[in-house]
Amino acid sequence: MGVPVRVVLVDDHEMILAGLSAMLAGFAGRVRVVGQAGTGAEAARLVTALRPDVALLDVRLGPESGLDLCRTLTRLVPETRVVFLSVYDDEQYVFEALRAGAAGYLLKRVDGPELVRRLEEVARGETVIDPTLAGRMVVTAARLTRGEFWPGADRGLTQRESEVLSLLVTGLSNRAIASRLVLSEETVKSHLRALYRKLEVTDRSAAVAVALREGLFR
């Protein structure tokens, strides 16, 4: 039997961490959990110190972004491969995860044997995608190539985020955008934070500049 895959678990829910740890404990000869973290900062410190084979992350870590953490980890510890374990079965999340440098995207309904097998594949250098998402990704990629999606879809924007960005380009305030789309201002702010992250900007002016420069809206 080979050396067990060394894994750090990252999730902001203690019950999830406990459940994953218990699940993987039954495969100690193949996978060994060497650390657990509940925040991005804690995870960055732990992974940097332990340098595991795999960091298993959730996409959302409370108010933090697992995608941002993935970018940080791949920069700080490139030898550690990042795999997302998420409840979100939207292929757009997968595209964004891969753009962030992830080596895999699995759904939380995965069972123990499948999870262990996937972690071993990632440790060998493979990229793994949950089977229920892989086929949809191929179709989505083909449609993106044909330009059949909304502006910004190739950057990972959801259709709603694209709508918010289009109104941002016209100069509308958050309140006006909320009124136009029949949303709360807080929801609009949440969409803005997401699209800022995906466009790799920090404010509305920069987001508008990217949208215009790339011809997303005219």
Rank of each mutant, 00 (worst) to 15 (best):
Ser179Val: 01
Ala49Cys: 06
Glu114Ala: 15
Leu61Ala: 13
Tyr88Ser: 03
Leu115Trp: 14
Glu186Asp: 10
Val82Ala: 11
Gly62Asn: 12
Asp53Tyr: 04
Arg75Ser: 15
Phe84Asp: 03
Phe84Arg: 04
Val138Lys: 13
Leu61Thr: 07
Arg136Met: 07
Pro63Cys: 03
Thr132Trp: 01
Asn174Lys: 07
Leu157Val: 06
Val82Trp: 02
Val164Trp: 02
Val110Tyr: 12
Arg180Met: 01
Gly135Leu: 04
Thr127Arg: 09
Thr187Pro: 02
Val82Glu: 02
Thr170Val: 09
Ser166Arg: 15
Ala97Arg: 10
Ala178Pro: 01
Leu73Val: 13
Asp58Val: 09
Asn174Glu: 14
Tyr105Asp: 10
Arg136Tyr: 08
Thr187Leu: 02
Pro78Gly: 08
Gly112Leu: 05
Ala178Asp: 01
Leu107Pro: 06
Val83Cys: 06
Ala97Tyr: 08
Ala142Arg: 15
Glu148Lys: 03
Glu64Pro: 07
Pro131Ile: 04
Ala103Gly: 09
Ala97Ile: 09
Thr187Cys: 01
Val83Ser: 08
Asp90Glu: 11
Leu168Ala: 06
Glu79Trp: 02
Arg51Gln: 15
Ala55His: 08
Ala103Lys: 08
Leu106Asn: 11
Arg155Trp: 07
Val82Tyr: 02
Thr187Ile: 00
Tyr88Ala: 04
Thr48Pro: 02
Gly112Asn: 09
Gln159Met: 03
Ser162Asn: 12
Ser173Val: 10
Thr140Glu: 07
Thr132Gln: 11
Leu56Gln: 13
Asp130Trp: 01
Ser65Tyr: 04
Leu115Asn: 14
Gly112Ser: 15
Ile129Pro: 07
Tyr93Ser: 05
Arg71Val: 14
Asp68Pro: 00
Arg71Cys: 15
Glu91Phe: 04
Arg146Pro: 00
Leu115Asp: 14
Val139Gly: 06
Val87Pro: 03
Arg124Val: 01
Glu163Ser: 00
Leu165Pro: 08
Glu185Gly: 03
Val82Ser: 07
Glu96Leu: 11
Phe95Tyr: 14
Gly147Phe: 10
Asn174Tyr: 02
Val77Tyr: 08
Asp89Leu: 02
Arg71Thr: 12
Val128His: 05
Tyr93Gly: 00
